[in-house]
Amino acid sequence: MKDSEAFRAAVRACAATMLNGDASPYEPALEILGLASGGLPVDDGDEAGNWLALLWGELTDRAELRPAEADRAEAHMVTAAREWLAVEGDEQGEARYFDRWLHDILGYEHRSARAQA
């Protein structure tokens, strides 16, 4: 669990930075993406790294690649950071968080929906 503890502490620090409101949340969001994309090792069985990479990759891409959506994407970043800090470490809470953000907010299909198509 040592690897995941360092990874999660770094993600918490970036999320907390987004909440201080002193600057754009884009840079700390990009840092979370880097951490989740292999910047720090994560223990086997800790799925947060995979899901955080997908979530923060989508949010940073929206801000960067869709200028008309940048303000909304940055607002989502702050909300996602606040919500992550509230659930991080609670396995069921994290599962609900990722389900809500990836499927309900960002629009990714559930696996079962793809399998039925």
Rank of each mutant, 00 (worst) to 15 (best):
S24P: 01
E47V: 10
I105T: 08
W101A: 09
Q92I: 00
E109W: 07
D46G: 06
R96T: 02
A86T: 11
E5K: 07
G107W: 04
T79E: 11
L102V: 07
E27W: 04
A15Q: 01
R114D: 10
S37W: 11
G45F: 13
L106F: 14
E88N: 09
R12C: 13
Q92N: 12
Q92T: 06
P67H: 13
S37T: 15
L65N: 12
W56P: 01
A63I: 01
M18T: 02
D44A: 13
G49K: 09
D104V: 03
V42P: 02
A75D: 06
K2W: 03
A15W: 00
M18I: 01
R114H: 14
P25C: 03
M18W: 10
G39F: 08
G89R: 07
F7K: 04
G34K: 01
W51T: 03
D99E: 10
A86N: 02
W56D: 00
V87R: 00
D61V: 09
E74L: 00
Y108V: 05
D99T: 06
M18N: 03
F7E: 03
A113M: 08
Q92P: 01
A10V: 01
G45M: 07
T17E: 15
L102C: 08
R12G: 01
A115P: 01
E94I: 09
E47G: 11
S37N: 14
S4L: 02
W56Y: 15
N50Y: 07
L55P: 03
E64Q: 11
M77V: 02
R96S: 04
E47S: 12
